[in-house]
């Protein structure tokens, strides 16, 4: 993920050399809400957002893998963020399609809020005693509230 972030920064530098000092420090995150918590996913990784899509149930996999979806011929696994984090499931959900290690996966969230620019320096590490294994950092949002940075690699392999 860090590589991709750097790539963004580099391209920004090229476009806008004066602002590098500020631009290089921020990352765009897309905010998805799941069970009242705001999760930020690196916007570079988000491919698309789907509403109203049929999920085909997949047997023999953990419960949090809700199944597979067909997006224009591409078959993707669907991971329910609620179930993954041990929360009760919810019926009407939104699918965020995310690219992780060149594999497309889709993440089920309650809703998608907006994009935010977060300065790198504002992202703080999670307290070590926290049990949120999929979150790599957190930060406060300007309009109030807290953003948890979701680590998609951990989501796949954790």
């Amino acid at each position: 993920m860090s590589e991709k972030t750097m790539a963004v920064n580099e391209s920004l530098e090229a476009v806008n050399p004066e602002n590098t000092a500020i631009e290089a420090q921020t990352t765009k995150y897309m905010i998805g809400i799941s069970d009242g918590l705001r999760y930020g996913i690196d916007a570079e990784q988000v491919e698309t957002i789907l509403t109203d899509h049929t999920i085909t149930h997949m047997p023999c996999v953990p419960e949090y893998v809700r199944g597979i979806v067909n997006l224009r011929g591409q078959i993707m696994p669907v991971i329910d963020l609620r179930l993954r984090l041990g929360k009760p499931p919810k019926d009407d959900c939104i699918i965020m399609v995310v690219n992780v290690e060149s594999e497309a996966i889709s993440i089920l969230v309650d809703s998608v809020e907006k994009m935010v620019d977060v300065p790198k320096s504002a992202i703080l590490p999670m307290p070590t005693q926290s049990h949120q294994k999929l979150v790599s950092g957190m930060c406060s949002l300007p309009e109030g509230g807290t953003l948890l940075i979701l680590d998609c690699d951990l989501l796949l392999h954790g």
């Binding site: 997949m58 047997p59 023999c60 893998v65 597979i68 594999e103």
Partner: peptide, 9 residues
């Protein structure tokens, strides 16, 4: 998907 296959389906 490779992710699904990783559960040995």
């Amino acid at each position: 998907p490779a992710y699904i296959n990783s559960f040995n389906v």
